[in-house]
């Protein structure tokens, strides 16, 4: 463990070869120290709560706990190369959790971001009464903690209590209906937040560009699609990255629903799988391997999205 800590430490505070800033006299030392003082608290936090834990997870994922010999001396950590990763990848429960989260993301991401974008364009472009009021109202669910959002919707979905059970075309707490229900909850929570982000970006579109489009005879829809959306593309892609990463980590909503329905298993998403392996089964090696696979998936997907964003605009 100490090895990993040292490695994390040196990589974060690697002395850079760049020349010291040119300053004169005895103040040079102080002037060089000051930026480091401003940076130090965050750098230390980043080191202690992100870099070291990641390194530690890497270490954990390569070991497993086994009873040695006749089991008299208690369990000990054995180096097992990548076999924890193998165990996770060949576990049908993990595959199912990945399948669930993939289906969830495929529906939630385009639905939520699409709705947010349409609403932002309407607020920005159309003649709308009470613009501030609409945008604030749609934004409010963002202020509701995930646990509470989960509880409120769970009650709304519950037969006999909430009205939705009779209205929705799917059985909201049934084994097939739970996925669209979670999409409904998550879209509710994030649509307004992303709408505000998009709307804020749309406000920065130069007015003379819009004027030029109008003179060229472009209608509001045309202007929105071929002038405004391309200009706020970077914002859209950043939102896309965050939404994809957030979707892969889906945890709170299904966990809360577990108290209301048996349709959500204890390993329903990869995050639940990690939680179960780590804190219920206490299989740290497997949990660490699964969590790093999840982190890897996040990294790969966000790199892919960013690649897509630069290629199309280039």
């Amino acid at each position: 463990m100490t090895v990993v800590t040292d490695r994390g430490d040196s990589s974060a505070r690697r002395p850079a070869p760049s020349p010291a800033p040119r300053r004169m006299g005895g103040r040079a030392g102080r002037a060089r120290l000051a930026p480091l003082l401003l940076v130090a608290p965050f750098a230390l936090l980043l080191l202690a709560t992100v870099l070291v834990p990641i390194g530690y997870a890497l270490y954990l994922s390569l070991f497993t706990e086994r009873l040695s010999g006749l089991g008299f001396s208690g369990p000990e950590d054995v180096f097992v190369w990548l076999s924890n990763y193998g165990a996770v990848l060949s576990d049908p429960a993990f595959a199912e959790s990945v399948w669930n989260v993939a289906r969830y993301a495929l529906v939630h991401v385009p639905l939520m971001l699409g709705a947010a974008l349409v609403l932002a364009l309407l607020l920005d472009g159309a003649v709308v009464w009470l613009r501030q009021v609409w945008s604030l109202a749609v934004f409010l669910p963002y202020a509701v903690p995930g646990v509470i959002a989960g509880l409120v919707w769970a009650y709304l979905f519950s037969p006999g209590i909430g009205p939705l059970n009779d209205v929705l075309p799917w059985d909201p707490l049934g084994s097939e209906g739970v996925l669209p229900s979670i999409v409904t909850m998550a879209t509710w929570q994030w649509m307004g937040y992303n709408m505000i982000i998009f709307y804020t970006a749309l406000r920065t579109v130069p007015r003379d560009v819009l004027e030029a489009a109008r003179i060229d005879g472009a209608g509001p829809v045309r202007t929105a699609l071929s002038v405004k959306v391309p200009i706020i593309r970077p914002t859209i892609f950043v939102a896309l990255v965050f939404t994809v990463i957030g979707s892969l980590q889906l945890f709170t909503e299904p966990l809360v629903l577990r108290s209301f329905t048996g349709s959500v298993t204890s390993t329903w998403t990869p995050s639940l799988y990690v939680y179960e392996a780590a804190f219920i089964t206490n299989d740290y090696g497997r949990a660490a391997a699964a969590s790093l696979l999840l982190a890897l998936a996040c990294a790969v997907l966000s790199a892919l999205v960013m690649r897509l964003s630069t290629r199309r605009s280039g």
């Binding site: 980590q249 990690v274 999840l294």
Partner: peptide, 21 residues
């Protein structure tokens, strides 16, 4: 650069090592 990577690290990946630390 490290800060930007930190934005992308999922909290799920950090929970177990943070707990053990």
């Amino acid at each position: 650069a490290v800060t930007l990577t930190g934005v992308l690290v999922p909290t799920t990946a950090l929970a177990l090592p943070l707990y053990l630390l």
